[in-house]
Design a protein around this nucleic acid. Structure first.
Lengths: 186, 186
DNA sequence: TACCTTTGCGACTGATTAGTCAATTATAAA
DNA sequence: TTTATAATTGACTAATCAGTCGCAAAGGTA
C-alpha cells in the first residue's frame, strides 16, 4: 500500500475520532507512519486532504452500490437493491459513513462543487422520475421523494447502530423498512 | 443583553460558519465585543462553551415544541403538532438547527451524558408506545418508529431549505409529509 | 467619603499549528 | 559504475492557539 493511501486511511480514522479540528496534520503523518513533509507532497494543504478524503470515500460507496444495483427495468427492484446496498455498505463501513455525515454537516460541504453533487444525485432522481412516469410512484416533486428516501436510509442506519443486532436482524429490519417506504411513496 | 448571551450568540454564529475548528476563542470574544479573558470567566474551557451552547440551543427548541404541543390525549393530534412545531422551529432557526446537526455528527456528542439524552427522548417514546398500546400504530419497536419519525423530520427540513419556498408551500409540504408518515406507521 | 466585591480587561505565555525547505535516500536508466 | 530524477525526510518557522493573571473599573453598602 502506498504512502498516499496510508495518509488517507490515517486521516479518516483521526478525523472521525477527534473531528477536523483536534486533528493536526502532524498527528496524521505520525499515524500513517510517514514524515511530516511527505503529507504535504501529496496534499498541498490540510483542506485539500479533507476534500480528497471525501471524494475517495464517496467513490468507494458509489462503486459498491453500483456493483450491487439490480440490472433491471423494474423500478421497485432497482430501488430496493440500491436501498439495501446503501445500508449494507454503511453498516460495513461505519467509520467512513460517520466521516460522510460529519463532512455533510460541516462547512466543508459548501466547498464541493455543485455539479459534482448534481452528478451523484442525478441517477437517483431519474429512477424516481421513471417510477412516477410509469404511474408507480405518487406524483410528488422528484427531489422531495429523494429527500424522503435518503433520510429514511439515514434513520434505519441510526437505529441499527444504536444497539447490537445480528446480521439477520439487520437484514430483516432493512427489508421491512423498504416495504414501509415503498408503501409510503406509491 | 448580558455578556454571557453575547458570547453564546457569537459562538453559535462562528461555529456554524467555520466549524468548531477554525473558530478561535479570540475570534468569538471579538465577535461578541468582549475581552479575551471575559470569555473564560463564563466558560472555563472552549469545550465547556461548546457543551453549554448545545444545551442552550436544545432547551430553546424543546421549550418551543413543548409550548406548541397539542394538549390532548389524541395520539395523532399530539404527534402532528409536535412534528409541525419541530419543523417550524427548525425553519425559523436555521443557524441553531445547523449547529445541532453539526454537534450531533461531531465527537462532542459522546460527551453528552446518556441520561440527558434519555430524558429528551423519553416523552416521545412514551407517546409512540401509547399509540401502539391503543392499536393505532403498528407493533414495531418504539425506538425504531422514533428513528423513522426523526429522520423524516430531518428529510423534509433538507428539502425545504434546498430551494426557496413560500411559507404556504412549506406549510403544505409539512402537512403532506405528516400524512405520508402517519399512513406509514399506522 | 471609604471599603469591599464583582466584573471586565488585554497583554502575555507556553504549547501547538500548518506548511517549508535543504539535505538525504531510494529508483532507474545508461 | 555513474548520473539524473523522484521520493522522503525531519528540523525549522512564523503564526496562531487556548488559557492565565495582575490590575482597573464599576457597583453596592454604610
Amino acid at each position: 500500500m502506498d504512502k498516499k493511501d496510508k495518509i488517507i486511511e490515517a486521516a479518516l480514522k483521526l478525523f472521525v475520532e477527534n473531528g477536523f479540528h483536534g486533528t493536526a496534520t502532524s498527528k496524521i503523518a505520525q499515524e500513517a507512519g510517514v514524515a511530516n513533509g511527505t503529507l504535504f507532497q501529496y496534499f498541498k494543504t490540510k483542506d485539500e486532504l479533507v476534500m480528497a478524503l471525501y471524494v475517495s470515500v464517496k467513490e468507494n460507496m458509489a462503486e459498491y452500490i453500483e456493483k450491487n444495483t439490480a440490472k433491471s427495468d423494474n423500478v421497485k427492484e432497482v430501488m430496493k437493491s440500491q436501498f439495501l446496498s446503501s445500508l449494507f455498505w454503511a453498516l460495513d463501513n461505519v467509520v467512513k459513513f460517520k466521516f460522510i455525515q460529519q463532512f455533510h454537516t460541516s462547512p466543508y460541504i459548501g466547498k464541493v462543487e455543485q455539479d459534482v453533487i448534481q452528478n451523484q444525485v442525478m441517477p437517483h432522481l431519474s429512477l424516481i422520475q421513471n417510477g412516477i412516469d410509469k404511474g408507480l410512484i405518487k406524483n410528488l416533486p422528484v427531489d422531495f421523494v429523494f429527500s424522503l428516501i435518503s433520510s429514511q436510509t439515514f434513520g434505519v442506519y441510526q437505529y441499527l447502530t444504536s444497539k447490537p443486532f445480528t446480521k439477520v436482524q439487520q437484514h430483516d429490519t432493512i427489508e421491512q423498512t423498504f416495504d414501509l417506504l415503498w408503501d409510503m411513496i406509491t
